[in-house]
Nucleic acid binder design. Structure first.
Length: 256
DNA sequence: ATGTCACGCTGGGCGTGA
């Protein structure tokens, strides 16, 4: 079983790269974030031609999440949005059942600046996510994957000093991330690579990808039954290269 | 290094968000 998560930064702009990924990696579940597409414009037809079905929570110009799975074992929607999230108009959370596993794709708010209303809304979203997970994780198996916009530890950023005063690394955000894990989830990348220092996001600007100036902010979190089946968890950096890349690379988790 | 993308609105740059 292969589970992939990818912040595509516009599904319309990234569709060729998504089709490339489906053909090359053949995921059993693909969680997308920042689809930035209207519900009516979601490219179901193109994905179906590639052998995939999708459930999407689309918000138009911003955000947007989806779960894709092969037509032979398609995703069955199990809910969208999050009780208690700060803006119900945002499209940042979708749940689907895929081959007996609850699969959640989430796009946590960026937060913009610490001590701003947007930062408070990020923490509020994370608190709502924790509440939801506390309810459904015990019923596992479950995977939640997406762009959490949090680097869990200093080693998950290229230079902690470069992020002083910035979001993604604050004690509050890291505590909120730990609280998600404490509902009974394990970080797939960290489980496979206890000493790994690889990243999933690099700024488009200033050649940051070329210099590997990135952060690990995309995560696959698994219930223990699924974590015990992990055989690999890799960052597919090739998708950050080439024509029209997203600023995020896909994260690929393989289960026996 | 305020350095790049992608969007909507529009009709070609600008405002917004990341």
């Amino acid at each position: 079983m292969r589970i992939v998560t990818w912040n595509v930064n516009s599904l319309k702009a990234r569709l060729p790269r998504v089709l490339e990924l489906l053909a090359d990696l053949a995921p059993d579940a693909l969680c997308l974030q920042e689809t930035k597409v209207e519900t009516a414009a979601f490219p179901h037809d193109e994905l179906r031609e590639a052998g995939y079905a999708a459930v999407d929570h689309s918000g138009g110009r911003w955000a947007g999440v989806a779960v894709l799975a092969p037509l032979a074992a398609p995703p069955v929607e199990a809910g969208r949005g999050l009780p208690g999230e700060p803006d119900a108009e945002d499209a940042r959370w979708i749940e689907a059942d895929v081959a007996g596993i609850r699969v959640i794709s989430t796009y946590v708010p960026n937060g913009r600046e610490p001590a701003s209303p947007w930062f408070d809304q990020k923490l509020q979203f994370l608190a709502a996510a924790r509440e939801r997970l506390a309810t459904i994780v015990p019923a596992g198996p479950l995977v939640i994957a997406g762009d959490f916009n949090i680097a869990p530890e200093d080693r998950d950023v290229y230079d902690p000093a470069a992020f002083t005063g910035s979001t993604h690394v604050t004690p509050e955000e890291r505590a909120a991330h730990r609280a998600l894990l404490e509902t009974g989830l394990r970080d797939a990348y960290r489980t496979v690579s206890p000493d790994g220092e690889r990243y999933t996001w690099w700024d488009y600007r200033a050649g940051h990808f070329h210099k590997n100036l990135g952060m690990r902010i995309d995560h696959v979190l698994l219930t223990p039954d699924l974590s015990a089946r992990l055989t690999a968890c890799d960052i597919a950096r090739d998708y950050r290269k080439g024509a029209k890349p997203s600023d995020h690379a896909p994260l690929v988790a393989d289960l026996s």
